[in-house]
């Protein structure tokens, strides 16, 4: 069998087998990181704990919509966390794009999943190579502390290759949906 990252394996066990041990592993991995992110974002300890609880329970409850061919676990959880933070800070729901249907079959295209994981590794090392100032700016941008005009379109991050990899996942989904009709 192919070997995905631990996080992907845990998430798939949660999604497909409602595996509590795997969920506890996800919690142990992500909850402290979420806490780091929330405190950096100005949340107090108690408020951060409430958000972590909501986010991790959403991970459990919405697991069926996780698709490793289109998203990587950290990114998927990041998005849930941002949405929850916006709910808490602005008391409003962000308009969301129409959901795409999930593929009927649960077969996983391992090559595609590994491809996304490789892109994520590249992205992480690119972030690690940023100067402290640059990294600070990128963090501020993705934590909602910059306006769109303050965000420099050119962050120096290799987004192009990730974009095309994720696109492959979408194309595969479209192909499957056509096949069903």
């Amino acid at each position: 069998a192919t070997s995905f990252s631990e996080q992907t394996e845990w998430m798939l066990k949660v999604r497909d087998a409602r595996d509590r041990t795997a969920f506890a592993s996800l919690f142990d991995h992500f909850a402290p990181r979420l806490r780091g992110m929330l405190m950096k974002n100005g949340f107090g300890a108690a408020q951060a704990d409430d958000v972590i609880q909501d986010v991790m329970l959403s991970v459990w409850r919405k697991a069926s919509s996780f698709n490793p061919e289109r998203a990587e676990v950290s990114g998927w959880i990041f998005q849930i966390a941002r949405n929850r933070q916006i709910d808490v800070i602005r008391k409003e729901r962000r308009p969301m794009p129409e959901d795409l249907a999930m593929p009927e079959s649960t077969d996983i295209d391992g090559e595609q999943v590994l491809g996304i994981e490789q892109e994520v590794q590249k992205l992480r090392s690119a972030i690690a190579r940023l100067t402290p100032d640059q990294r600070d700016l990128v963090q501020k941008a993705y934590l909602g502390e910059l306006t769109h005009s303050e965000i420099q379109a050119e962050t120096g991050l290799p987004l192009g290759t990730i974009k095309s990899r994720i696109r492959l996942g979408l194309e595969r989904l479209r192909f499957e949906m056509k096949g069903e009709r």
């Binding site: 990181r33 990587e72 950290s74 990114g75 994520v120 990128v138 963090q139 993705y142 934590l143 990730i162």
Partner: peptide, 13 residues
């Protein structure tokens, strides 16, 4: 989704 992945990479770090 690529931008969400950047967010995820930051979260991870």
């Amino acid at each position: 989704a690529a931008h969400e992945t950047v967010g995820g990479a930051l979260l991870h770090d």
